[in-house]
Design a protein around this nucleic acid. Structure first.
Length: 493
RNA sequence: GGCAUUGUGGCCGAGUGGCUAGGCAGAGCUCUGCAAAAGCUUGUACAGCGGUUCGAAUCCGCUCGAUGCCUCCA
């Protein structure tokens, strides 16, 4: 019944720097935590790629039969500007600039985040907790860490004592850094820093009087450090040790390194069995940055409203484009790449739509069973979606060959082929079928069939002026007719 | 400067120590009333320079380039 028993999965563990056989801590169950967005502006397309990678991973784990608890947080406090005036909270800053309440900022961009993800056909996580909803838990962890001697309070703020922690633990094991190197590479700053060591990081920050996002604590009014929320929420919902922790490559250090330190200091055990990091998205070969203008919002792709694009692209085409690269590779977005993906996606959907009409035989000239296993092998190899897609196009070729009666397939193989394609394309990759007509135009197939019939009659009478008129005018409406061995089909673009 | 990831044919992108990735674009053929679609055929790719090896794009070293990070603090 459970596929995971027959389909051994390997994942690349950033902590070890190699692929490992995936064995969940509790058989049949997977706990997965992914660092969610800081909701102070519209969700970045690069962020979407990270979350989409983990959406696909979530989907495949579920497909394998695991019961997955997927926790993805919303950071609505504590994430400070690192290059701004005074280390202001990103959300508080936005609120100040727009003269609205911080929670209005949070609400606006949380809604934006959910809207975009829905367009991309994301599955909702099992739990989507917020940092502000877990202040009490965070304070408890800080108390615990202080008690164990790995943190100190000074002037109403609490800092994690990294050198102390490093004496008995390994700070830097995830990012491959050594504390000594970090110390020698740190610029000497003017010594007004209240931290004992530049490597120390804040668990709790004292709120200055003008700081509006503040909570009471044993150390006075303040707010939690950014790294702490993830430790608090992952521990609360997934336990002291859980299976998978994911996030963007950019969070590896310091964020994830600090999470490990906090959890080990507090619980005495390493929090995560498999660390997984998704790689970055670039555009036209360069990093995406608002400052250089080399940046694009998801909505601008859906509308085509951006200078680098020649047209609009649907969310599912963008999703297909992203799935064509491995999640650990840098992916480069460009108009040409999206155009190529759009055509490939179309071809895939046309094949899906053509399966039902295929005639079956007593024997198969296609080995569907081993093809299916190749699809699983690809996904089992650290979620290799691009290789999976290569295999899906093999199936496309098979389907088209069958359509031309140049191959044969049995009824059961045909059903297996169809079920496998549906499972991987829609359940695992999360693509949506554009050929499935919506309620608004569900009469379209009948109408087009009528026109196809009229065109056939015209062609039979050698009235090519009429037949071409039907074909060309439908094409102008975005409906393409395709003449095949068994008559004419159509697709809508 | 340090750490990490990375550099594949016109474009996007997999992969392995010796055996086809795949998609898009291009070329030829088949089919077709003509197209389109589809099928078949077609590409002296693996940043550069050394090394290991019978053999490396795949392992090692160096060089060059790309991407991320270098800590809540000016």
């Amino acid at each position: 019944m459970h596929l995971y028993k027959s389909q051994p999965l390997k994942v690349y563990n950033s902590l070890k720097g190699k692929k490992e056989i995936f064995e969940s801590i509790s058989e049949g169950y997977v706990g997965m935590y992914v660092c969610g967005p800081t909701v102070y502006s519209n969700v970045h397309l690069g962020n979407c790629r990270t979350f989409m990678s983990f959406d696909m991973i979530f989907r495949y784990l579920k497909h394998l039969g695991y019961k997955v608890r997927y926790v993805r947080n919303i950071t609505d406090a504590g994430h400070l500007e690192n290059d701004a005036d005074e280390g202001e909270d990103k959300i508080a800053k936005k609120a100040r600039l727009e003269r609205i309440e911080p929670m209005e900022v949070v609400q606006r961009y949380t809604v934006d985040f959910h809207t975009i993800l829905q367009k991309f056909n994301f599955l909702p996580p099992s739990i989507e907790p917020t940092a502000t909803g877990h202040i009490i838990e965070q304070i408890e962890i800080i108390k615990d860490i202080i008690e164990k001697g790995f943190a100190y309070e000074i002037n109403g703020s609490v800092y994690f004592d990294v050198p102390k922690f490093n004496e008995s633990h390994n700070y830097g094991k995830l990012s491959g850094r050594k504390l000594e190197d970090m110390i020698s590479n740190t610029r000497e700053l003017a010594s007004q820093d209240e931290k004992k060591s530049p490597q120390d990081f804040a668990l709790w920050k004292k709120a200055e009087t003008q700081h509006i996002m503040r909570w009471p604590s044993p150390w006075g009014d303040g707010f939690p450090g950014w790294h702490l929320e993830c430790t608090a929420m992952s521990t609360k919902y997934l336990g002291e040790t859980f299976d998978i922790h994911g996030g963007g490559m950019d969070l590896k250090f310091p964020h994830h390194e600090c999470e490990i330190a906090q959890a080990e200091a507090s619980n005495g055990v390493s929090p995560v069995k498999y660390w997984m990091h998704a790689n970055m998205l670039t555009m036209n070969g360069k990093k995406m940055a608002k400052s250089t203008g080399n940046n694009i919002l998801p909505e601008e792709i859906f509308t085509g409203n951006n200078d680098i694009l020649s047209k609009a692209f649907t969310p599912t085409v963008v999703r297909f484009f992203m799935m064509q690269a491995h999640y650990t590779s840098i992916l480069d977005l460009s108009n040409d790449a999206l155009l190529a993906s759009e055509k490939g996606y179309s071809k895939l959907m046309d094949a899906i739509g053509a399966i039902d009409a295929i005639n079956t035989s007593d024997s198969s000239s296609i080995d569907v069973v081993s093809w299916r296993q190749k699809c699983y092998d690809a996904m089992n190899d650290d979620f290799n979606s691009p290789t999976l897609i290569a295999h899906l196009f093999e199936a496309v070729k098979h389907i088209n060959t069958l359509k031309e009666h140049k191959a044969t397939i049995t009824e059961s193989d045909k059903n297996l082929l169809k079920a496998t394609l549906n499972a991987f394309i829609f359940d695992v990759l999360g693509l949506e079928n554009k050929n499935v007509s919506s309620a608004d135009n569900d009469k379209l197939p009948d109408v087009v069939s009528l026109l196809i019939q009229l065109r056939k009659e015209a062609r039979d009478n050698k009235d090519f002026a009429t037949s071409d008129k039907i074909r060309d005018q439908l094409a102008a409406l975005g409906i393409q007719l395709k003449d095949g061995k068994d008559g004419t089909t159509f697709s809508v673009s």
